[in-house]
């Protein structure tokens, strides 16, 4: 059950009437790694925001043994670490160390545990030397790693990443993929980066105009040119 995701018939419309998700159903096993593919506006980010209850659509959603509802949101948000597309949205404290400690602090952990979690998260992504830096002093790649560290310090069961390799140069992209490859959590990654999907994420789910149009092995889906063309992925 740990790290499992079950989405049952999820639909969501933004104010103004645009349907971003239509009857999406999906099941992800613990420790599984899934690529969420789709063109811009397909509903990938919207789906990710549902995983930790930031958006609440129609339908049901289970994280581990908990069905997502108001009373369990704090625990859901502890279990699902959401990494936003723009790291500047996620790094809202003055230093990296403060940002990484933010989550455990709000979980009410004691100070020595907060320090321990912060150290471990920074070491895991390899930016311990940047702990005292301000976000604006860092490169885009470093900010992405810092954003990842901010959710790792909460010891999540599931990682939901929104376009993690966007705006990264080759070296930063390789470094991030290497870090993600070392992690053991369940992973759902919304991405346009088909290379990332093929090397890191064995399963792919394709969203098109808010619905799931394909779900299977990444290898097979990425070979289906007609499907990729139809969904705006190439």
């Amino acid at each position: 059950m740990k790290g499992e995701i079950e989405i049952c018939d999820l639909s969501f419309a933004y104010p103004g009437g645009r349907w971003a998700l239509r009857s999406v159903s999906l099941a992800v096993a613990g420790a599984e790694r899934v690529a969420l593919l789709g063109a811009n506006g397909a509903g990938k980010s919207t789906l990710l925001l549902h995983l930790n209850g930031l958006l609440r659509g129609r339908g049901r959603l289970r994280i581990g043994e908990l069905w997502v509802q108001g009373s369990v949101l704090p625990e859901i948000r502890r279990r699902v670490g959401l990494v936003f597309q723009d790291p500047d949205d996620q790094l809202f404290c003055s230093t990296v160390e403060e940002d990484v400690a933010f989550g455990p602090r709000y979980l009410g952990r004691p100070e020595d545990e907060i320090r321990g979690r912060t150290d471990r998260a920074l070491q895991l992504v390899g930016i311990d030397h940047l702990r005292g830096r301000a976000p604006f002093e860092m490169s885009e790649g470093e900010k992405k790693l810092a954003a990842l560290a901010t959710v790792l310090s909460m010891d999540p069961d599931i990682l939901a990443l929104d376009e993690p390799t966007a705006f990264l140069d080759g070296r930063s992209r390789r470094r991030l993929i290497e870090v993600l490859g070392r992690l053991s959590q369940t992973m759902v990654v919304a991405t346009h980066d088909l290379g990332l999907a093929s090397c890191l994420l064995p399963r792919a789910v394709v969203l098109h105009e808010g619905t799931v149009v394909a779900d299977g092995l990444s290898e097979q889906i990425l070979d289906d040119e007609d499907l990729l063309l139809k969904c705006g992925l190439i």
Binding site: L82, D86, Y106
Partner: peptide, 18 residues
């Protein structure tokens, strides 16, 4: 978005002393 990012990491409006 920053508001959402704060909520995603457990922020609930309480301002904890540093």
């Amino acid at each position: 978005r920053v508001h959402l990012a704060m909520l995603a990491r457990g922020y609930d409006g309480r301002l904890l002393p540093s």
